[in-house]
């Protein structure tokens, strides 16, 4: 995911200038705290899109103050957007920092793995608690989109917590098993099958 498709989408809604784009994006994600995009990022994206011919710039004199540049989406831009809508989003489920931390902890023996789990779980619970508090404060009549986002976070946290239980339950067994070693390619002749 990049800001690129967000900008394209927002321009497909109607032509906007750079500042407006940033504000609209932040409104969608529920605030700058949730997903901050700096103006430079917006302008860099717009420039790249313009170069690819996906957006077009209209200079427009402002009655007072500095001149503002308005952007709109092109035909190719619309095609690219359609392309984005029609494909699934890629996620990298296997990339997990805690997992690497745990493996390294086990490999190096420089930390207590149980303590690691405890610390992580406490953190996850604290996050879950905070989001739960937020979620209960949100008004379901007006802020359902936001609640949806909270729910997603809650579910991820729940999954992580359950996984943490699993890790803890299997830790003893994991420690008994050999550490994963790199599967080094054998140099020289392959070994004979006979023996």
């Amino acid at each position: 995911m990049s800001v690129r498709h967000a900008v394209l989408g927002l321009l497909a809604q109607r032509p906007r200038h750079g500042y407006e784009l940033r504000a609209a994006f932040e409104a969608f994600v529920g605030g700058r705290e949730n997903w901050e995009v700096n103006p430079a990022q917006i302008y860099a994206t717009l420039t790249r899109l313009e170069e690819s011919g996906l957006v077009r710039e209209h200079g427009m004199a402002q009655a007072s103050g500095p001149e503002k540049r308005i952007y709109s989406i092109t035909r190719q831009g619309k095609d690219a957007l359609r392309e984005w809508f029609s494909t699934a989003i890629e996620r990298e489920h296997q990339r997990d920092e805690f997992f690497i931390k745990l493996m390294l902890c086990l490999a190096t023996g420089q930390a207590d793995p149980y303590k690691l789990i405890q610390t992580q779980r406490a953190k996850l619970y604290q996050d879950l608690h905070n989001i739960t508090v937020q979620r209960t404060r949100a008004n379901p009549q007006a802020e359902l989109a936001r609640i949806l986002l909270y729910d997603k976070a809650i579910m991820y946290l729940e999954a992580d917590l359950r996984w943490m239980d699993l890790v803890q339950a299997r830790l003893d067994e994991i420690m008994r098993q050999p550490m994963p070693e790199p599967d080094l390619k054998p140099r020289g002749r392959p070994r004979k099958m006979q023996d």
Binding site: V29, G30, G31, E33, N34, W35, E36, R121, A122, Y125, Q126, D127, H129, N130, I131, V133, Q134, R137, L149, Y150, K152, A153, Y156, L157
Partner: peptide
Amino acid sequence: TRLHTKDGQDAEMVLGKMK
């Protein structure tokens, strides 16, 4: 684990991290 209820700001930050 003791859980602390912080103000909304903290929670939103966490949400951001989640994203």
